Amino acid sequence: MGVQLSVVVPVYNEKEYLSECLESLLEQGDDISEIVVVDNNSTDGTAEIIKEFERRSPKIRYLVETRQGVVFARNLGFNSVQGELIGRVDADTRVLPGWAREIHDLFTDREFDAVTGFSLFYESPFASAQRNAVAKQDNLGNLGGLKDAPSLTGSNMAIRKSAWLSVQGSVSDRKDFHEDVDLSYCLLGNGMKIVQNLAMRAEVSGRRGETGPIEFLSYNKASIATLKHHGAMNRRLRFMIFRSSILHTVLWPAYRMYDKNTDAMSVKRLFFRPAARQMPVEA
Score class of each variant (00 low, 15 high):
Gly2Ala: 12
Val3Thr: 15
Ser6Val: 07
Val7Tyr: 05
Val9Asp: 07
Val9Lys: 08
Pro10Leu: 10
Val11Gly: 10
Tyr12Leu: 09
Glu16Pro: 00
Cys21His: 10
Cys21Gly: 11
Leu26Ala: 06
Glu27Pro: 00
Glu27Trp: 04
Gly29Ile: 11
Asp30Val: 03
Val36Gly: 04
Asp39Lys: 05
Asn40Trp: 12
Asn41Trp: 05
Asn41Tyr: 05
Thr43Gly: 03
Ala47Cys: 08
Ala47Asn: 10
Ile50His: 09
Ile50Arg: 07
Ser57Gln: 05
Pro58Ala: 05
Arg61Leu: 09
Val64Ile: 15
Gln68Ile: 11
Phe72Arg: 04
Leu76Asn: 06
Leu76Ala: 08
Ser80Phe: 14
Glu84Pro: 00
Leu85Met: 05
Leu85His: 11
Arg88Lys: 07
Thr93Cys: 12
Arg94Ile: 12
Gly98Lys: 00
Ala100Ile: 01
Glu102Ser: 12
Ile103Ser: 01
Asp105Pro: 00
Asp105Met: 01
Asp105Trp: 00
Phe107Gln: 02
Phe107Cys: 02
Arg110Asp: 14
Glu111Ile: 01
Phe112Tyr: 15
Ala114Pro: 02
Val115Asn: 02
Gly117Lys: 02
Tyr122Thr: 03
Ser128Pro: 01
Ala129Gly: 10
Arg131Gly: 01
Val134Lys: 07
Val134Gly: 03
Ala135Asp: 15
Asn139Asp: 14
Leu143Gln: 13
Leu143Gly: 13
Leu143Ile: 14
Leu152Gln: 04
Leu152Met: 05
Gly154His: 06
Ser155Gly: 13
Ser155Pro: 00
Asn156Tyr: 03
Ser162Asn: 08
Leu165Glu: 15
Ser166Leu: 07
Ser172Gln: 12
Arg174Ala: 11
His178Ser: 01
Glu179Asn: 09
Asp182Met: 05
Cys186Tyr: 10
Asn190Leu: 02
Gly191Met: 06
Met192Ala: 06
Arg201Trp: 02
Ala202Cys: 08
Val204Trp: 06
Gly206Phe: 13
Arg207Met: 10
Arg208Ile: 03
Gly209Asn: 04
Gly212Arg: 02
Tyr219Trp: 15
Tyr219Ala: 07
Ala222Arg: 08
Ile224Asn: 02
Ile224Tyr: 13
Thr226Ser: 05
Lys228His: 09
His229Asp: 13
His230Asn: 10
Met240Gln: 15
Met240Glu: 15
Ile241Gln: 14
Ser245Met: 09
Leu247Ala: 11
Thr249Arg: 00
Met257Phe: 12
Asn261Trp: 06
Thr262Met: 05
Leu270Tyr: 14
Phe271His: 04
Ala275Tyr: 06
Glu282Gly: 09
Ala283Arg: 10
